[in-house]
Design a protein around this nucleic acid. Structure first.
Lengths: 118, 118
DNA sequence: ATTACATATGAATATATGCTCAGATATTAA
DNA sequence: TTAATATCTGAGCATATATTCATATGTAAT
């Protein structure tokens, strides 16, 4: 009774649903970029960095003290956040002050916070 | 010239910034829950599942066909999304139809998509 | 009951990833 | 230049995690 067929070793029950999903799907490049964005926030250390920077810029050793992790660990994570352009820094002498690149991240974290609190 | 001091093997340059960050910080439990939310979307397979379900419910084998991964893999990921209450299902005979639990996830993915597209 | 289908699940494996450690780079002061 | 501070970086290790494989469960039809 089920109108399925084999394709790529996968059963398909509702062919039109699958076709529809394929039609609406984002291009691989976008999927990748969105996933990377979420990965950036999917780690406690990085998430806490982002949340801390929402209240103002901080330097590496302050962040390390606040997070209670090594400065090396913070630096590694900041590089990742930098590469994703979620944070930027300004140098003042030997110390680098990090801040959020824009307010998009804050919007997202705010939304998620609302979600988990209700 | 720098007014730092040692504490927990960590240098602190701007004591008041660190104290401020501590004051504003979320409680550990909330951090954990927010991070878990992001982790749910930080994987290509799960992200594509969520995005696909935004256009309507789908059963496991349809999802497997759409994603081009095994049904077992999909099932494992769906369990994770279920545990985080991001998706729910309804049974119709032997087939389970999965759908988004609410529209919070869609709001978040929408926001992130805007971000990466600009 | 038995068969078939749809999905779930546990264990194992392979890959990804966060942290540490050692050392490098950059900036400033002496 | 030398020393000191702040940060960065690569390699290695230990843990986390996504997928596979084999098997179990649940549902419906015969």
């Amino acid at each position: 009774m089920a109108d399925y067929e084999d394709r790529c070793q996968c059963r398909i029950i509702h062919e039109e649903r699958v076709a529809g999903a394929r039609k609406m799907a984002l291009v691989p490049n976008e999927i990748e970029r969105v996933a990377h964005f979420f990965k950036a926030l999917a780690d406690n250390t990085r998430l806490r960095i982002i949340l801390a920077l929402e209240h103002g810029e901080m330097c590496v050793c302050d962040l390390a003290a606040f997070l209670a992790v090594s400065e090396s660990a913070v630096s590694h994570q900041l590089r990742l956040l930098r590469q994703l352009q979620l944070v930027t820094n300004r140098r003042q002498g030997p110390v680098l002050y990090y801040r959020l690149a824009d307010d998009h991240v804050s919007q997202v974290t705010g939304l998620v916070l609302e979600h988990i609190r209700e």
